[in-house]
Amino acid sequence: MVFLFYFLSAIMVISALLVVFSKSPINNVIYLIICFIAMAGHYILLNAQFLAVVHIIVYTGAIMVLFLFVIMLLNLNKAIIPQKSAATRILAVVTGGIFFLVLIAATRQTFVITPRYAFTSEIGLVANVGKTLFHEFLLPFEISSVLFISAMVGAVMFGKRDHTSDEL
């Protein structure tokens, strides 16, 4: 089972790199879906079964389909967008590498983890997550509905054709 961790990690890192480096937007979405499915496997390994199901439904089922829908609606799979200049691209890779090294160095020895509770493998079941969600986090959960309504209103406002900006 430890093998499974390294297998899923390799799939995730390779497909994440392909998201960055492949040119066609459709391929980007497909690689990102592969990455997210591997991440759902990680959630199952982490005993977060509820999160694994929600991750598959929300990310690969809704968000990625939304991305695909917009790409096909705007007909972007044929649109050629020039890449950034070579110097900028090399600098981006170098910046990412340096950021990676700094984070690794910062987190390498600082954490001495002593678990708060004794190990149980049942924390991620729907019953336990639901109890925590509706006892301790009930108010944030209700407030997030306001966030959703404002996001819906914002999306409709942006999506509506604006008659005052025709002269731009």
Partner: peptide, 14 residues
């Protein structure tokens, strides 16, 4: 880091 590199690397907003 890969995600941050991608934000700096790409020009396509999607």
């Amino acid at each position: 880091s890969i995600g941050m590199m991608g934000v700096l690397f790409r020009r396509n907003i999607i």
